[in-house]
Every structure is written in C-alpha cells, then in structure tokens.
C-alpha cells in the first residue's frame, strides 16, 4: 500500500502533463516498451533464448503500454 501511494505521489509530480494530442511520438512502435505486438512476440523469443543461458531471470519489462493513447 505504501509503495502504491509512493508511485502515485511520484507520478502526480511528473514535471509535465502529457496531453493526448502530444502523444503521437509516444504511441509509435519505436517508443513503446517492448515495441508493438509484432516486436513483443519477437522479444519473448529472444528472452526465451537468453534466459536459458544466464543465471538471472525476471524484471525484463512489460510489453506495450506507456503511450497512454488507447
């Protein structure tokens, strides 16, 4: 709960409110975390290859999201 409140506090203090009409760049595939749907499938393949060959695992990010344009 504390973490959630902290996230909201930091989020609401973001320096600029990004209005919907300003999200053209952010909604583009090259600015999406994990890319578009095509890229996210490829990223999953890549992670599958790497995770089997390294000792660490996890926190590799969430696909999509971030454009706030849906």
């Amino acid at each position: 709960m504390r973490l959630f409140i902290l996230v909201l506090a930091i989020s609401s203090a973001a320096c600029v409110t990004v209005r919907p009409q300003q999200r053209g760049v952010l909604s583009d595939a090259i600015m999406q975390f994990g890319g578009n749907e095509h890229d996210s499938v490829e990223h999953a393949h890549f992670r599958h290859a790497i995770d089997n060959r390294e000792g660490a695992f996890g926190a590799e990010g969430v696909s999509g999201g971030g454009c706030g344009c849906n």
Binding site: S11, A14, V16, V18, V25, F33, V62, G66
Partner: peptide
C-alpha cells in the same frame, strides 16, 4: 510461482520510463 509488477510513467511527449520488479 512468479509475480511481476510494472509501473510505466510518461514524463514528457518524448520521454517515458518503466520500472519493474519480479519475484520467482
């Protein structure tokens, strides 16, 4: 068992961040 939480934040029209935490 695996849980992952994510927080994506838009900071400006050209800058965004994403923090994730996972436990398995």
């Amino acid at each position: 068992d695996a849980i992952q939480g994510g927080w994506t934040q838009l900071w400006s029209p050209t800058f965004a961040t994403q923090a994730t935490y996972s436990i398995q």
